[in-house]
Amino acid sequence: MEYLSAVFQEVYKILFLLVPVLVSVAMIVWLDRRVWAFVQKRQGPNVVGPFGLLQSLADALKYIFKEIIIPSSSNKVIFILAPIVTMTLALIAWAVIPFSATQVLADINVGILYLFAVSSLGVYGIIMGGWASNSKYPFLGAIRSAAQMVSYEVSIGVIIINVLLCVGSLNLNDIVIAQKNMWFVIPLFPMFVIFFISALAETNRPPFDLPEAEAELVAGYQTEYSGMMYAMFWLGEYANILLMCAMGAILFLGGWMSPIDVYPFTLVPGAIWLILKILLLFILFALVKAIVPRYRYDQLMRLGWKVFLPLSLTWVVLTASYLFYFNLLPVN
């Protein structure tokens, strides 16, 4: 009985985390479209609900009632599994995101590695969807996406090493607390820029949305999906974007810590600061989508392997030698 109640407590905690995440994914889609529209001097969705806030819910309702079409030549099990995998992976990563020093679902030792592992698993949803559709455009989209995500993961991993050198721990809360005096965005600013661009590529956002480039590949790996399955890909994609923003906020912008450590600011709960930082990063994501044209595929690969990887590796050497010679290495 005691065991059962403990299990129920955990389930409550998970629900209290996941339901807000799902609702905020819906809201963030609205925000994305609004920012995009404002850059182009349009109004964007403004009809359903106040300021069009309920637009995403209306869209979701529409998707639920649409027919799910499974192509007869597809590999059915994997075809159905693909959106489920995408969605699940986008949601399980939130387990380790700290909203304050105590408000975290799983405060594990290797939190940042867990985040990195889950985001590198994200590629499977796309490959499975692309392959199981058994059609040309989805397959090409899946191959592009796999190559792109594997390439940019390398530079994200190296950037994480930069931050870890300054922290000396893999725990996300330790990473946040290590930024008490100065956010890592100041000493590691070039790394922050590279992280931001790699996060765009990792989440298949414009200007790196080649896996679903509508001008070349119809809709890439999503071409054969319809109804709720398409909506799940969509939700998973936006949940991943939010996760990348959260990762950026934790690694470089001080996570749940207030920007200045003085009285009225410290009253605000950490979760609010984290959400504000995520929103700031997300608005940057949306602006990039609105103002930058799409990359060509060979340019994308060149940027990942020939520019970002050497740059971030050099920065690791620089950071390490700086910390070593000024005796700042975090040793415990």
Partner: peptide, 25 residues
Amino acid sequence: AEFLGMIMLIVYVGAVAVLFLFVVM
């Protein structure tokens, strides 16, 4: 061995198996 577990996920599942899948597909 949480570090080994995570490295297993990142290296084998996140990178090596993707390349396997690439070739096999």
